[in-house]
Design a protein around this nucleic acid. Structure first.
Length: 603
RNA sequence: GCGCCCAUAGCACAACUGGAUAGUGCACCGCCCUUCUAAGGCGGGGGUUUCAGGUUCGAAUCCUGAUGGGCGCACCA
């Protein structure tokens, strides 16, 4: 419908070109927007105002020039100049209701577009270190990434979801060593646990499992375990460090762990804790309606030599140099604040080196666009990754880093503080259990991702009118109940399969001329907007737009529900209303599916 | 100190990317259940879009500066 308006504007412009009012090579940026106010009709364009200077006439005169050259249409019933020079379009009521048939015909495909046809996108998100369970901070990235991915699929992109597993590096060594130390203490040895170790309860579970499976195979004397290890940090009552160094302490323990256990046994413990946590994360995300196509292992990058290949590429580009024993990437050549180390003086490659290789690998897999969803605390990292991509000869624009702000949790009006290392945090699993998947997904995604966000646990939990997710689901359930009632009253409308929307009512067959109420017109307009909303949300990477649209649509439905009866004797009226609300139900489903929220048939 | 992000009704947030009288929910006030679920609807009050300049037909939106908040500035991940 919107396209139709735009098309006729193009024709009018072309006519003006023929008449030499406009230059022949002029390419107007035609923007047709949905009118906000009903008095302004259905669509509006600011085209006349934008051409004011080119034509050299006041905007309202330009508007008249355009209107006079619009092609005949039986859909556009009225065109008017308004305000400073807007052109308002009024759409024929009957034509507006065609969307009801359209929805019935397309079903769960209504809203899909070919916007991204032929383009493949890799969406990488969550990617939390497998050092513990996911917490609510990861939840927002998970909800956002999954919804964005759904949105892009609906917009015609070929999308792949990926989780980058940091299964290498120092944090993992700390985790493995922490596990081993818990194993030792569970085996009856007593010693102070390092202040920088992982203290979560899940570590004990792994330790106990190791004892069951391997007995005392990994037990060593405490004196050996702590041999040559720097003193741990000691704090006074005020929390000030008075002696020791927790980083050096844990590093010493890691060295001893590897040496005493040997490569193979160390790997057994390492993999045990890694796999347990990873499978927990997988289960957790799956329970949150978040699915990944690929779990990409950092270690596989090292084993396959991709990191070396990437560094060679940078070397070949002349962007690697040595300074005080380390290898540096000259990222300042591409606008980064400072050069970055890729190989440390101890020979170990940095996390950044892995990440360069990872992005190289992503590109080599043939994706047109790489989307990385990161926590906003990583924003300083963007320039160096872009620099690396540019240096390797890739277009840095192929990478889109989307930052997600942290959610601040509130319970009973009080801010909940979280500290990961100490094991004190609200897990995603607890959140799911406490507020439910639907409410949690909705809460996360109803805010623009770069907005700071307050997550009120009590509100999310409340099954009241304060909770918008139920408002939308209620609209869906209400429609289902109406059909249920109709069936019980014996009306011969076949809605046997509630999954396939309009079974029994053939698309384009039910006459809709009985739809005359204001609420009905409003709903038809809203339904007509849906494909446009989806496309726009996809382009802007903003799933929250879907959430807001659904609230609008639900409001339209509730309003309609209160304005009239659906299950009425008059067959023409009844079937027309049924067709309309069935279309609303379908669009509610389609939209909720994008943001990963269920559409219950009763509440 | 330098850099990035943010600031909209009492609260939480939108605003079609520069358009018409800045909207929605909660909270507050008044109505509507002998009607398909009142987890709903209808109506009302509430704003100098943090502040000060600038750009233009037109600014919450773009530019400059100030203020307040978040984050980042490792041979950590």
């Amino acid at each position: 419908m919107k396209q139709l308006v735009a098309d006729s504007l193009v024709k009018a412009i072309n006519q003006l070109k023929l008449e030499a009012v406009l230059a022949a090579d002029f390419e107007p940026n035609i923007v047709v927007e949905n009118a906000k106010d009903k008095a302004h009709g259905d669509f509006a364009t600011n085209l006349a105002m934008m051409l004011t200077k080119l034509v050299g006439k006041p905007p309202r005169d330009v508007a008249q020039l355009i209107i006079d050259r619009l092609p005949e249409s039986d859909v556009i019933t009225k065109v008017a100049i308004a305000g400073p020079g807007f052109i308002n379009f009024f759409i024929d009521e009957a034509a507006k209701y065609q969307v009801v048939h359209e929805v019935a015909k397309q079903g769960n495909q209504f809203g899909e577009s070919t916007l991204g046809a032929g383009q493949s996108v890799l969406v990488e998100f969550v990617s939390a270190n497998p050092t513990g369970p996911l917490h609510v901070g990861h939840g927002r990235g998970a909800a956002y990434g999954a919804s964005l991915s759904n949105l892009l699929k609906v917009a015609g992109y070929t999308v792949s979801n990926e989780y980058y597993v940091n299964d290498a590096g120092r944090q993992m060594d700390i985790l493995a060593t922490s596990t081993w130390l818990r194993y030792l203490s569970e085996s009856g040895q007593s010693f102070p646990f390092p202040s920088n170790g992982y203290k979560g309860d899940y570590i004990f579970d792994v330790a106990k499992g190791l004892i069951q499976q391997h007995g005392d195979k990994f037990v060593f004397e405490i004196a050996e375990v702590f041999a040559n290890v720097a003193a741990d940090e000691v704090k006074d009552d005020q929390g000030e460090v008075i002696s020791g160094d927790k980083e050096k302490h844990i590093d010493g323990l890691i060295v001893n762990a590897k040496q005493l256990l040997g490569e193979a046994n160390y790997r057994v413990i390492f993999d045990e804790v890694l796999n347990l946590i990873l499978s927990d994360i997988k289960e957790d995300l799956s329970g949150f309606n978040v699915e990944f196509d690929t779990w990409f292992s950092e270690r596989s990058l090292m084993d396959s030599g991709v990191i070396d290949a990437a560094l060679e590429k940078l070397q070949a580009a002349g962007k690697i140099y040595e300074k005080s024993g380390a290898l540096w990437f000259k990222s300042t050549d591409y606008g980064d604040e400072k050069d970055r180390v890729v190989v440390r003086d101890n020979g170990l490659k940095t996390y950044f080196a892995s990440d360069i290789a990872y992005h190289l690998n992503k590109l080599e897999r043939g994706f047109d666009t790489l989307i990385d969803v990161w926590g906003s605390d990583h924003h300083g990292y963007i320039p160096r990754v872009e620099a690396a991509m540019t240096a390797m000869g890739a277009d840095p624009k192929a990478l889109e880093v989307l930052l997600v702000q942290f959610a601040i949790l509130y319970r009973s009006g009080k801010k909940l503080s979280m500290s990961t290392r100490s094991g004190q945090f609200v897990t995603l699993r607890e959140l799911r259990e406490e507020v439910g998947v639907d409410a949690a997904r909705f809460f996360y995604v109803q805010r623009k991702s770069e907005q700071h966000m307050d997550f009120d646990l009590d509100l999310a939990k409340s099954r009241s009118n304060e909770n918008p997710v139920y408002y939308i689901q209620y609209a869906h359930a209400r429609i289902c109940r109406v059909f249920e009632q109709a069936k019980q009253k014996g009306f011969a409308v076949d809605f046997e399969s509630q999954k396939s929307t309009l079974k029994g009512i053939k698309p384009g067959v039910v006459p809709l001329s009985s739809l005359t109420l204001e609420q009905e017109s409003l709903l038809a307009t809203l339904l007509g907007k849906y494909p446009d909303v989806v496309s726009r949300a996809a382009q802007a990477h903003e799933p929250h737009q879907i959430a807001y649209y659904l609230k609008d649509l639900a409001h339209g439905l509730h309003s309609y529900y209160n304005a009239c009866q659906f299950v009425v004797e008059d067959e023409a009226v009844r079937s027309a209303r049924f067709a309309l609300i069935a279309a609303v139900r379908q669009v509610l489903r389609n939209g909720l599916a994008i943001i990963g929220v269920s559409a219950p048939e009763s509440m």
